[in-house]
Amino acid sequence: MSEITPAYDTDVPPDESPVECPYCERPLESAELLVLHEGIEHWERLDDDRREEFRETYQDESDDLRTFRLKMLGLLVVVYFAFLFVYSIYTNDPLSAATLVGFGADALG
């Protein structure tokens, strides 16, 4: 929640109307992102209403993230089983860590 925000170079496409942070003038892409930005970077300067708004927006974002994480978990499971499947074709004992340790050992032996 520091007040010292590094200034980033920004470039707003001409056909878009950004919201601008009143404290550091950084243009932001949506009203929600502005609320989050203010809460993260300028907490000390916010009034109680704005802080409450930040908490709500952050909570909403956390809900979105839950869905996102489920998708990521699904992807991770797919990747894991894809590798397991491919290894089962190319090695005799895909579950064994010896596959990996093996090449290290016999390469140096």
Partner: peptide, 25 residues
């Protein structure tokens, strides 16, 4: 270490890439 792999090279490469991708996830 990689000199005498017990898996084909492309699988070794894919596994390395997969580990990095999975760590991002």
């Amino acid at each position: 270490a990689a000199g005498s792999l017990s898996v084909p090279t492309w699988l070794f490469l894919l596994t390395g890439g997969g580990v990095v991708g999975a760590s991002f996830l």
